[in-house]
Amino acid sequence: MTSALRNTLTVWYALILREALDRLFDMRGAWFWLLAEPAMHILFMSFIRVVIRMRTVANADALMWIVVGMLAFFLFRRTAVQVTHAVDSNRAFFAFRQVQPFDPALARAVLEAFLMAIVAIIILVATSFFDRQIIPDDPLLVLAAVLGLWLFGLGYGLVASVLQNLIPEMKHVLKILMMPLYLISGVIIPLSSIPQPYLSWLMYNPIAHALELVRLGYFEHYHTVPGVSMGYVYAWSVASICLGLLLYRRFAIQLTMR
């Protein structure tokens, strides 16, 4: 192993441990809210959908439909938001030459994937007490879609963090952008219930594709909306990460300076 690679790996290791400390013990019970936030959303939405309205969504069990979609969406949103603020929260550490702006971004994305895996397992096991089958029918498809979603979260975060450092007004725009994503990505409103031509507009959103694919992997007989494509998800992931890396390379100095 070359010394440059070893240096980078030790920096990532140190940053992941430092970020884990921040995420889990930053305030009293921080680790509890990490689990409670998606759990509350799921409880509330599934109460409305399962108890009051219907039992199935597009041939899938409604409770599992919400659990799976919500967990996948939270993986994207948390990764994106955490990566967006990675540089700001680690400004002090850029005094060390070996810490570059990209390092905390990657450390946060990896940590978020790890934490969301634990959160997902706990919530899925809890769901199994309601007589639901929690093992996916096609685990590989679920993993592929979730990986694509995570990569897109990383790419989105990289681009967003550069934008909001260069243009302070972007902070507000990005916040406004995040809010409707929850509604238009098919987390709680089934996309199959939306008529054309509006559906094809919503399908420009790669998160909608990824959520449908995760559900297809979970339920063998799920009816996805037409035009769902794994390639489309990964095209967005790769493009956003490449753009993000380019921006980091070009604006590295502006990112670390105040």
Binding site: R6, A14, D26, F96
Partner: peptide
């Protein structure tokens, strides 16, 4: 070459010990 002594390198929200651990790890003395 050292980092510029007396400037930055310390994150205010971490404790002295946590900061010290980070600096040791980043310099390969984990």
């Amino acid at each position: 070459l050292s980092w510029p002594m007396g400037h930055g390198g310390v994150e205010p929200d971490l404790t002295g010990r946590q900061n010290a651990k980070f600096v040791c790890r980043v310099h390969g003395f984990g």
